[in-house]
Computed example of a mutant assay.
Amino acid sequence: MNTYQRMVLASRPSGEVQASDFRLETADVPAIADGQILIRNHYLSLDPYMRGRMSDAKSYAEPQPLDATMIGGTVGQVVESKHPKFAAGDFVAGMFGWSEIGVSDGALLRKLDTTHIPLSAYLGPVGMPGMTAWFGFNQIMQAKAGETVVVSAASGAVGSVVGQLAKLRGCRAVGIAGGKDKCDYVVNELGFDACIDYKAGNLEGDLAAATPDGVDAIFENVGGAVFDAALARTNAFARVALCGMIAGYNGEDVPIRNARVLLTNRLTVRGFIVSEHMELWPQGLTELGGLVATGKLKYRESIADGLAAAPEAFMGLLKGKNFGKQLVKLI
């Protein structure tokens, strides 16, 4: 390859993301210097957090710069190396964004063993989404055997792992997802005890029926009405791992009507950003990798073909059109 493609942020969206907010560019493949590695990316991860980065509003991280390669996690293969710890042919994970090519000095670049774990899984259950689930479940929810756990966006890359970890711990796992197909998958394939279809029109009633003993821990990815319904079912001293508020990512209000239970039920609510806890990643990824390699942790992927398809896939992700982890295949 003499040239490669990359996708840049062309404009900041107002409301819903549009295809015109992105621009596909062609660039020359750079020559690497001593100590650098050239990587051909095979898969790009699309994640809800990217919507927040597209805005210039104050947040936990700096905004995505305009006219620069969109941020994103990638896995790929080393094609050339002038670094002593990496060789051509090595599979690696990095943050090279919406781009077919990445250049690294080795910092934050992770070698991958694809003997028993597929390459793409390192962007899902054995990557950032899996670690997000692992950290929220183990460090915040701290659910014990016999307790009831509720997981929103339960068929997604993060929620699906949370529910399976809960079942391995001996918990009752109740998912919330959009549509019968997703709910059937959550129960029949992932092993949740129940899954509520929030599109069916009886969210609060269905959730009450599925949690007869109340809710001891919530993993929240959505916010809005879904979060409110789960809060209403909490038991005293329930714990909430607040991971995402996708219901409000386009600027919509996400009010909490049941805020009184935060006090009356003495809830612990903790928001978290998993990249701020890198010291736990080796432990978490080792555990998750072992579960995937032995078939104890199942996952599903939605794969868009080619970098040009990334904007449409990303817009679909924000509307729940994906089924499982959303990836873009780059090679």
Rank of each mutant, 00 (worst) to 15 (best):
A313L: 05
P129S: 12
M50S: 09
V79N: 11
P30L: 13
L207Q: 04
G156N: 09
R53Q: 02
A200S: 13
F135Q: 12
I71N: 01
M7N: 00
G289H: 02
G89E: 06
L285F: 14
L46K: 06
L108Q: 12
G89Q: 01
G289Q: 04
L119I: 06
P212I: 11
L165P: 12
K180H: 06
V187N: 04
H277A: 00
K325S: 04
D181H: 11
I273L: 01
A88F: 00
I218Q: 07
N221Q: 09
R53K: 04
V187R: 12
Q326V: 13
L291G: 15
A166V: 08
D305A: 13
A157S: 04
N2P: 05
I176G: 09
K180P: 08
I39P: 01
R172H: 09
L119C: 03
G127C: 10
G76C: 05
W98C: 06
H83I: 10
K182T: 08
R53C: 06
G223K: 13
A19Q: 08
A247S: 14
K325R: 08
E312K: 15
V29W: 03
L288M: 06
D181Y: 05
T69C: 08
A153M: 08
R6M: 12
A143Y: 11
L168A: 10
L38F: 01
L44Q: 03
V158N: 11
G306F: 06
V187L: 07
E62W: 07
